[in-house]
């Protein structure tokens, strides 16, 4: 019990850093060809917090969800890809759960339909948990093409 309390304190005074935002998101763009780009979304995840895959079985932890606003200047090609992460059996939910820690990159390929400069607006709905608590997160992202 004493060990757990001490760990709790370390987590309390350490992992509760940025408890409002255990994940910091940054974005980037990579040009693939004249009309194709990759939208790059990086997540920096606070110590001991986990961020979850876009695909999580029902009744498990909440998945990470990317929503890109529709816009006549571009179209999405395929799904948003994600890093390798870790897939482990979770004894609480009794299922295999894929999660990320520390850092993960998501990519969305797009095809540009014209030569205009335009913005793509999106949002991310997600959840992060450590051993002690879970925080729901929501953030807006934008890309300038």
């Amino acid at each position: 019990m004493k060990k757990i309390i001490y760990l709790l304190l370390l987590i309390t005074t350490a992992s509760y850093s940025q408890i409002l935002e255990p994940v910091k998101w940054t974005t980037d763009i990579k040009k693939i060809s004249d009309f194709e780009y990759d939208l790059i979304i990086n997540a920096n995840i606070q110590t001991n917090y986990h961020l979850y895959s876009q695909k999580v079985p029902d009744n498990g932890p909440r998945p990470t969800i990317f929503i890109f606003e529709k816009n006549s200047n571009y179209e999405l090609i395929g799904n948003t890809t994600e890093g390798k992460g870790h897939t482990v059996y979770d004894p609480i939910f009794k299922m295999n759960v894929k999660y990320f820690d520390t850092k993960v990159t998501f990519k969305q390929r797009i095809k540009v339909k014209n030569k205009n400069n335009f913005q793509i607006i999106g949002e991310i709905e997600y959840m992060t948990c450590n051993d002690l608590n879970c925080v729901l997160g929501y953030t807006d992202i934008e890309f300038k093409i």
């Binding site: 009744n59 498990g60 932890p61 609480i92 959840m127 948990c129 450590n130 608590n133 879970c134």
Partner: peptide, 10 residues
């Protein structure tokens, strides 16, 4: 709590 919150259910 919530059903998706492991630390809650534990």
């Amino acid at each position: 709590w919530a059903s998706w919150c492991g630390p809650c259910r534990i």
